[in-house]
Design a binder for these strands. Structure first.
Lengths: 240, 240
DNA sequence: CTATATTTGTGCGTATGTATC
DNA sequence: CGATACATACGCACAAATATA
């Protein structure tokens, strides 16, 4: 006889069990799970042990806890986001049959820091417009962004942004007819508290961060943009 | 009077404090931190509270705990990985001044599942070769991969892989002179237990997963590959 | 090589805070 | 308002891996 049990940790086994039940469709998306206390009783463990299992499923984007309300099954709708020469957020969301929205949370003008200055090919401290906001599909945040523009070249940009609600249109109004993406760097991060709040994600959820410099027809940098995509709601696609 | 303190959670404040000290360079990469017990005393909190702070820094890839030994400062060397028409892992690692290694952990032939069949444009159940392994820079795992090939077209592939140790060379030996990447989908995930072990990462660490289909000159799929990159060791770059 | 101390990982119990219903 | 449910924090104990004498 033998006991060939690998002996994982308890919370890990429970997480696997629950993940399998979720994959099987035992709970519908949006549905509430039994309370932590009930689940702890069911598995015969302490509530802390069960919470650790839930924490992993939450980080994987499968569950969504709401304090005071319960733990809910996340509703997954993956949006494909093509990463081409031009950025077309609206098209990507529309193609998925959803309504694109863009919301600016901060627009300010200040001196460029070292990183921004380098990427925009400006001396440090040169005035730049900084635009922050969130992109939504219907009511779900897909991405948070921060874009930096040389203020000297686009003096009226902040005003235009308020009027048009679109970066592309605002740049056109400032005389920039065409611009393209020079290079993009993509890294994976986990959401900290601030980012998690902006994207309505759990802390520790995976995030795709892209950094790109857009240039005009002469190769002059006109925008240095960073975008954080919710890892379990967006898939970036690259076509050659 | 007033208490204008936002009153974050204790563990969150501690995590921020430690993150600032790490960013300041208070501990060198590879150095051991004070033990959890000592740090807990320093901040005047329970060990669990401190551990939660460490957990976040670990998930962010800043720390690396070794059971029985201590908690260490992670040594970060970001490798840029260009995502072009052709895959050149060796070149990317060499360009960073490191030695590329590839190690195959499993080579088997079996029937294609639904997903594999669809991406290779084959009927489900058609025999395919499945190759799994890890790519390293020096001794650090950068990526884990799984590639699926139509077995009918490359009957001798498993043997060739053992001989050459290279997928590109093995395909050449099987008569495929040239192939290109059709499309790539990129998503962010968190590492589960199995993946964390293969990449020598902490569970919950962020991971970039790419899925790509490679086609020959006629557009026929010849490889369906999935790669998991360690999120804090690799940056994918996309050039237009 | 063995024994012992140290250090991280897991698990239980209890209590309290805070948001929701 | 009270009841419910998740979030945080403390304390204790032991297991497992490592380091050290």
């Amino acid at each position: 006889m033998s006991a060939p049990i690998p002996k994982q940790s308890l919370w890990s086994e429970i997480a696997d069990t629950l993940a399998a039940e979720l994959a099987r469709g035992a709970y519908r998306p949006g549905e509430r799970l039994p309370s932590e206390a009930e689940l702890a009783r069911r598995f015969g463990v302490n509530r802390h042990t069960l919470r650790r299992a839930l924490a992993r499923l939450t980080a994987e984007g499968k569950l969504f806890p709401r304090r005071g309300a319960g733990v809910f099954v996340a509703d997954h709708a993956m949006t494909d986001y093509p990463l081409g020469r031009r950025v077309r957020f609206s098209q990507a969301v529309s193609a998925a049959g959803q309504t694109p929205t863009r919301c600016f949370s901060r627009i300010e003008t200040r001196g460029a820091d070292a990183d921004e200055a380098q990427n925009l090919a400006l001396p440090p401290g040169t005035p730049v417009h900084v635009v922050e906001g969130v992109s939504l599909a219907d009511t779900t945040p897909l991405a948070a962004f921060r874009s930096v523009f040389p203020a000297g070249r686009f003096p009226g940009l902040p005003a235009r942004l308020g009027e048009t609600g679109s970066i592309t249109l605002a740049l056109q109004a400032e005389g920039l007819t065409d611009y393209t993406r020079a290079q993009t760097r993509i890294v994976a991060k986990v959401a900290g508290a601030a980012l998690a709040a902006r994207l309505m994600l759990a802390e520790g959820a995976p995030v795709l961060r892209t950094r790109a410099v857009n240039v005009d027809g002469t190769g002059q940098p006109v925008e240095y943009g960073t975008t954080w995509f919710a890892g379990d709601r967006v898939a970036l696609t690259v076509a050659p």
